[in-house]
């Protein structure tokens, strides 16, 4: 893992009015004196809104919204691997390599992905379309091997199926 890599874009992103209302709703899930509890759902929303990853400015912006010290947001954002601290492509391809998927051939799936996308794990293709990641169990062992592209699960994968799925992406 290449650590301490929060990238600064120099631009502070802003939530739209509509999203700010959504954030108000998130805050209401928690007691008024526990606003910091909202940090995870808001970071998740920020990642969705601001291009699939969290720049340093995005983290600082969220810290400001919740009124907590930035370092406490950095701690949360770096603790969980599902917050991306580096830019990701339009399609974030996350292949599971945990035990169930591995026993069912996730190595071949991974190789097929690498060949098809022509990138290694943790890299983003030059056209910024794909980022390939190796992830831990996503809870779909029943249909292993599996992968997740953005919000969708693709299960019972084979090498051919992987290529077909990638090709079909708009």
């Amino acid at each position: 893992m290449n650590e301490r890599t929060t990238l600064s874009t120099g631009v502070t992103p802003r939530f739209s009015e509509e999203k700010l209302q959504e954030i108000e709703k998130i805050f209401q899930r928690y007691p008024a004196d526990r606003r910091q509890s909202a940090v995870m759902p808001i970071l998740h929303l920020a990642q969705r809104e601001f291009g699939g990853w969290l720049s340093r400015e995005a983290l600082d912006y969220v810290a400001g919204l919740i009124n907590m010290p930035p370092i406490r947001v950095y701690e949360v954002a770096t603790f969980y691997t599902m917050y991306n601290l580096q830019p990701v492509g339009r399609y974030h391809v996350q292949a599971c390599t945990n035990i169930s998927c591995w026993l069912c051939g996730s190595d071949q799936v991974m190789d097929a992905l690498k060949n098809k996308l022509k990138i290694g794990v943790g890299h983003t293709s030059e056209d910024k379309r794909f980022t390939l990641a190796e992830v831990e169990c996503l809870g779909a062992c029943v249909n292993a091997p599996m992968m997740q592209i953005n919000d969708d699960y693709y299960e019972n994968l084979t090498t051919d199926k992987v290529v077909e799925i990638i090709d079909r992406l708009p």
């Binding site: 893992m1 650590e3 301490r4 929060t6 340093r56 010290p69 930035p70 370092i71 406490r72 950095y74 701690e75 770096t78 603790f79």
Partner: peptide
């Protein structure tokens, strides 16, 4: 003045201000 923190986790944990 909350500037020190522990970022990342497990074996990768680092203490510092991160930025």
């Amino acid at each position: 003045v909350e500037q020190m923190g522990a970022v990342y986790r497990g074996d990768h944990m680092q203490v510092g201000p991160f930025v």
